[in-house]
């Protein structure tokens, strides 16, 4: 009896070894194991902090009591918060539109440069994008300095009145958007340039034979061929721009009169500087639905593009 039992046990072990062997040989298992380090990283560095932020956003100011959606409810009643929502949308949407337009135009210019000199131009035009934003924003800070602006010094040379780059609401908003566009436009340029290079030359030749003007070639050939890359780049940039922190923080700190505060900087002001971490978390979480919508569009577009290919 004992012998039979032992044999049974051996057989069972053999079966399990064999099924483990099979499992390990499956492509999906190997793929899973290979992506496991990344999954762990995402869990530790993304999922856990995100979950913790949600947890923090549901605590009271002293972090001693669970208040559910109390912090969000509180924010809905704050005038300053709605100003931040408006400014975040204004900042992100305006900056992305300008980055897309400038990127598109510059990509066309670069595309039309003979290939021999194109690399130099591509390299130079990418410089604003590859410099760490905190560094380049500091340089812009000196250009916009309230009392010693280099730009105003140049304007004074032309007898033009000084501009309060960071001192007046309108100009301060313009300044932070300008710096964001300066930093981000090269990304659009390089993506659009890659897309332009993939448009078959025959399509332009056919359009020319049909008598299409330059703008018709852009409208009926270039834009439809670049549609997916334009959408993906714009939506990707929208996410990054909404979550921006460094440009506003360095350039204006949200001043004057909080008129340049965006979600990231306001969350920092409320959460870290003012010591209300739950409310700061709640402010930062307001980016989530906006960014989730953008991410959904990106994924849908990628899927659509994939199925078209």
């Amino acid at each position: 009896m004992a012998d039979i039992a032992a044999r049974g046990s051996v057989a069972a072990t053999g079966d399990s070894r064999s099924s483990l062997h099979k499992l390990m040989q499956r492509k999906s298992t190997i793929a899973f194991l290979m992506t496991l380090p990344l999954i762990v990283l995402i869990l530790v560095l993304v999922a856990y902090p995100a979950g913790y932020a949600v947890y923090l956003a549901m605590l009271n100011k002293g972090m001693t009591r669970f208040v559910g959606f109390g912090n969000f409810d509180f924010l809905f009643g704050r005038e300053t918060f709605w100003m931040v929502v408006y400014q975040s949308c204004l900042f992100a949407i305006t900056a992305v539109i300008f980055k897309a337009i400038i990127g598109f135009v510059v990509a066309h210019f670069v595309h039309n440069i003979p290939s021999k000199g194109q690399r130099k131009w591509r390299g130079m035009l990418l410089v604003p994008w590859v410099i760490p934003p905190a560094m380049s924003t500091l340089a812009w800070l000196w250009l916009f300095d309230p009392s010693y602006s280099a730009l105003n010094w140049i304007l004074a040379g032309f007898d033009i009145e000084r501009i309060p780059w960071t001192g007046e609401t309108g100009w301060a908003r313009f300044s932070v958007i300008l710096v964001n566009v300066w930093i981000g436009a090269p990304f659009f340029m390089i993506m659009y340039l890659a897309a332009l290079k993939s448009v078959p030359e025959q399509l332009y030749e056919a359009a020319s034979i049909d008598g299409a003007a330059w703008w018709q070639r852009i409208w009926y050939v270039t834009l439809p061929m670049m549609r997916n890359i334009i959408a993906i780049t714009a939506l990707f940039s929208l996410i990054v721009t909404f979550a921006n922190f460094d440009i506003v923080r360095i350039l204006t700190r949200g001043d004057p009169l909080n008129s340049t505060q965006i979600f990231g900087t306001w969350a920092f002001r409320v959460g870290i500087e003012s010591g209300d971490i739950p409310l700061g978390s709640a402010v930062s979480l307001f980016m989530v639905p906006i960014l989730a919508v953008a991410a959904t569009f990106i994924l849908r577009d990628i899927t659509k593009r994939g199925s078209e290919v």
Partner: peptide
């Protein structure tokens, strides 16, 4: 005061 004081930070007065 200088008209740009609403944009001043902690370094601005030193520079002034």
């Amino acid at each position: 005061l200088p008209e740009d004081v609403p944009a001043w930070d902690d370094a601005s007065n030193n520079k002034w």
